[in-house]
Amino acid sequence: MRRPVIAVVGAGTASEAAAEAARRVGSAIAKAGAVLISGGLGGVMEAAAQGAKEAGGVTLGILPGADTWSANPHIDHPIATNMGQARNAVIVQTADAVVSVHGGYGTLSEIALALKAAKPVFCIHPPCEVPGARIVESPEEAVERAVAAARKRMASSRGKGVERDG
């Protein structure tokens, strides 16, 4: 059976508190047996990938540029899109659920794209005053709820002749 894919979205530069939350998210994703997908660069993306790798997980990085070597060192599978911020759509469409850890306008775009695609979104830090996004108290709660929602979504899509991203 395919493992759930959980996107971690957030700022390309992160405070130590946001980076620590992202590392905890990445670790929890790996421990849940899910795959982490992110934008593959620094800040929240790098911290989450580091947490996942330290816990034995698999990481995908959907990069904005044309160079796979621009990925942070914790990305197993870098995918160069040369699409700039439009790569956010690829991240969201590939994910079964999204966890937001702090961020700015790029993060808001990913949250909006995910909600538009009926993907579950769980926010740990602002900016998450977005209708439809669920605010959670901890990285572990975010991942627990994201993985459960992803598995439920995957199960309901199976056998209906419907694409899994809805």
Rank of each mutant, 00 (worst) to 15 (best):
M1R: 14
P4W: 08
V5A: 09
I6G: 07
V9Y: 12
G10M: 00
A11T: 02
A11H: 06
G12R: 13
A14I: 01
A14E: 09
S15F: 01
S15E: 08
E16H: 00
E16V: 01
A17G: 06
A19Y: 00
E20A: 01
A21L: 11
A22W: 00
G26M: 01
S27Q: 14
S27M: 10
A28S: 11
A28E: 14
K31T: 10
G33Y: 03
G33I: 04
G33H: 01
G42F: 07
G43I: 00
V44P: 04
V44I: 14
G51W: 00
V58F: 15
T59I: 04
L60G: 04
G61A: 08
P64K: 02
G65P: 01
G65L: 02
D67E: 14
W69D: 15
N72L: 10
P73G: 10
H74N: 14
I75K: 03
I75E: 09
I75L: 07
D76T: 03
A80R: 02
T81V: 05
N82I: 00
M83I: 02
G84M: 08
G84V: 04
G84A: 04
A86W: 11
R87T: 08
R87M: 09
A89M: 13
A89D: 10
V92W: 08
T94K: 11
A95K: 07
V99Y: 06
V99D: 11
V101S: 05
V101M: 04
G103D: 06
G106D: 06
S109P: 00
L113D: 05
A117P: 04
I124R: 03
H125P: 00
P126T: 06
P127I: 07
E129C: 10
G132E: 12
I135K: 15
V136N: 11
S138F: 08
P139W: 05
E140Q: 13
E140N: 04
E140G: 00
E141F: 03
R145G: 07
A146G: 11
V147T: 08
A150R: 06
R151V: 11
R151D: 10
R151E: 15
S156R: 15
R158Y: 13
G159F: 07
G161T: 07
G161H: 09
D165N: 13
D165V: 10
